[in-house]
Design a binder for these strands. Structure first.
Lengths: 224, 224
DNA sequence: CAATTGTCTTTCGCCTACAGTCTACGGCGC
DNA sequence: GCGCCGTAGACTGTAGGCGAAAGACAATTG
């Protein structure tokens, strides 16, 4: 027990700037997802290092990690290139995402308490408001947070981490599409939450599956 | 066209020892999975470097990768520690594995041709032979190859890569158990292949799900 | 004129060196 | 005797440098 009368959770925890490699990692990921670095582009370590004001080492380590997570391709003795998504890969990734999200919905339906349900409804309401205001970026952000919350309710950390990575890449591939489908998406969210509230695992799975599959359909319709 | 009369495909392509970091990665992974490095153990970069005859840099990069894949925990300013599996995590990982493998079985049932089926049956036969000979290591290896083959037949690269990682970790956690269940496992394999041969997606999914779930049951029974 | 070869630049892969930080232990005061 | 503080050791985090491989381009030769 601490002898000082400090309030337990309120200690700021001395915000330290974590390892440099992590910040470089996030910076690069941001640049990639925002298309500032385009697919296929050659990433030169020394350039990035100079541009970010650090040495090559942290940049190298960040690139390694980005490579294992599928954001860049690391050709031996040649360097890092921003990964170029193919039609096939995007499709496969979406299949996996559907799988993971559907399972999360099922688990969430099995575990969710009343407090959690209201939390979901709050998030959903906020998202709907963003759509009503034509705040596209806000709606996309709320969408991510809602899905993340469902993942959290599922209570499976491993599943959550995998899904987080897959989700982020799917969003990267499908950003042009995702921005288009605002309203319909949130109607489906309501349905999903209802299913979870009723503890109906089957229906929650089915709704989530249909929900993510709509993205695929949207995309294929758009191709023409 | 080459003017030299070199045989076209027979050129050995000059096997080069890939990047050092990759070899270090595989060496460390081997040491971890074989329990030569025990969970919780502190991995000192300079020690490993000296022991492997390389500098710290490749070791660092290998540790980074092992960290993102969940084999070691990287505590800032303190170093790398071999990850310690918890009951809960093992359980969650198994859930994910069940999910991925079941989907793979479904896709395999949808795609498999006759040639592929015979290939599966050959692998299965070889596995059964290993069991009959009490060749435990051989049986485990064949098990891995069979599952990998089914993944391949599923034709989803993303799914395959994810499953490969999850599988490897599951095998690490459950090695003491996995070695125990030889015969029953291969009976189930036969069933699974039959379902795939009949193109029965539903049944293939169900059989694979039951198959992986048996591992969980085995483990929990063993706890007592 | 085309194919080839030699050279040259760029960039990576790895090593070495230094600075910052955490841990452990021993001395000092109470 | 007990607890706190300071110091020393060890290890990680970051920086910079050297050798080597890959690609580009020009010169050379048939």
């Amino acid at each position: 027990m601490l002898s000082t009368g400090l309030p337990q959770g309120a200690v700021p925890k001395l915000e330290r700037p974590g390892p440099l490699r992590d910040r470089v990692y996030e910076a690069l990921l941001e640049l990639i997802t925002t298309r500032a670095l385009q697919p296929g582009q050659h990433l030169v370590e020394s350039e990035l290092a100079g541009h970010l004001g650090v040495s090559r080492q942290p940049v190298r380590e960040a690139l390694q990690r980005l490579s294992t997570e599928g954001w860049v391709d690391l050709r031996p003795a040649q360097g890092a290139f921003v990964h170029e998504p193919t039609e096939e890969e995007a499709d496969q990734l979406l299949t996996v995402r559907t799988l993971l999200e559907a399972e999360a919905a099922r688990l969430a339906a099995a575990n969710a308490g009343t407090a959690a349900i209201t939390a979901l409804e709050d998030l959903c309401a906020e998202g709907e408001r963003a759509v009503a205001d034509d705040d596209v970026d806000g709606a996309v952000a709320m969408n991510a947070r809602l899905h993340a919350k469902i993942m959290e309710l599922a209570g499976n950390t491993v599943l959550a981490e995998l899904a987080a990575q897959v989700d982020r890449r799917v969003r990267w591939y499908y950003t042009p599409v995702a921005r288009q489908r605002g309203r319909q998406s949130w109607i489906e969210h309501r349905e999903l939450i209802a299913a979870i509230a009723e503890r109906d695992e089957q229906r929650a799975t089915a709704v989530m599956r249909a929900h993510t599959e709509h993205t695929r359909k949207m995309y294929h319709d758009r191709e023409k």
